[in-house]
Computed example of a mutant assay.
Amino acid sequence: MADDVEAAVLVELKALRKRTAGADLAGIALCPTICQLLGNGDPAAAQGALQNLPFGVEWSAEIEAACYVLGLASEADTVLGRLEEYASEHYIDQRQARRRSELGLQELARLITTNWTREAVPTLRLYLTRSGDHSIDVHVVADCPDVIDMGVPTLTCTSGEATTTTEVQTPNEAKSGGQRVSQGVSLSVSDGDEVVISVVWPGTMWPRFVVTHDEGRARQVVTETLGAKLLVRLLIN
């Protein structure tokens, strides 16, 4: 669930806040959810994304306070020291500073699991390849980090009057490093046929679709995407 991922990020942010060095590289490396969402598993990339926070979102007093307690805007080596620095620079008491930072961490967790998720976007790749004079092979590879909750992609192929529906293997059936791979589907085609291929991949995020075609017989290829659905139409010569 999306709420579960956000909650996991918030727990990790609070853990970083407690560290002497705050959100340094060593600390980020201990935060698997943040590493996946911001760096595709790379702590250095995730740290860079987190450090660029002030330049990528609309400013708020709460986010600024969160930057202080995480050590992104302060060099103090304790949470108390970072809170005191923020409170002093903004002429407020420490209790107000703590309240702002708590709200800021919640806002950060929400941003990290929505707006900032770039490296961890679920990606489905559809390959169309000519395998003979009267057949086209369709293959799907779907990649999804463990921290993103996605359902099972469904592949539907229609060629002439024949329709084939295939489910991409579920994580429990075939998963290694967050990758799920479908079995290939071979379609019989004839001159003048319209081939329609659709993929629906439901989940907590809209996936990215990538289509590669080398079928060699289509005089027209139309690709459409909307939300969780990909549609490819081919008109066969």
Rank of each mutant, 00 (worst) to 15 (best):
A2V: 12
E6K: 15
V11G: 09
E12W: 08
L13T: 02
A15S: 14
I28N: 05
I34Q: 04
Q36T: 05
Q36I: 04
P43Y: 08
Q47K: 14
Q47C: 07
F55S: 10
E62Q: 09
I63Y: 06
A66Y: 10
A66R: 10
A66S: 12
V69C: 01
L70R: 09
L70M: 04
L72M: 03
A73F: 11
A73S: 15
A76V: 08
T78E: 07
V79S: 09
G81N: 07
R82E: 12
E84C: 12
E85K: 13
E85L: 06
Y86W: 14
E89R: 15
H90I: 08
D93E: 08
R100V: 00
G104M: 11
L105Q: 09
Q106I: 12
I112P: 05
T114Q: 10
V121A: 03
T123A: 05
Y127K: 08
L128N: 00
S131Q: 09
D133F: 06
D133E: 11
I136D: 01
V138F: 00
A142T: 01
V147Y: 07
L155Q: 00
L155W: 00
T164Y: 08
T165Y: 00
T165I: 08
Q169L: 14
Q169E: 10
T170K: 04
P171E: 06
N172G: 12
N172I: 11
G177S: 07
Q179N: 07
Q183M: 12
S186D: 04
L187Y: 00
V189S: 00
D193H: 10
E194H: 12
E194P: 01
V195E: 02
V196S: 11
V196T: 14
I197W: 02
V200L: 09
P202F: 04
M205F: 13
F209W: 01
E215S: 06
R217P: 00
R219G: 05
V221N: 05
V222P: 02
G227Q: 07
K229H: 12
L231F: 03
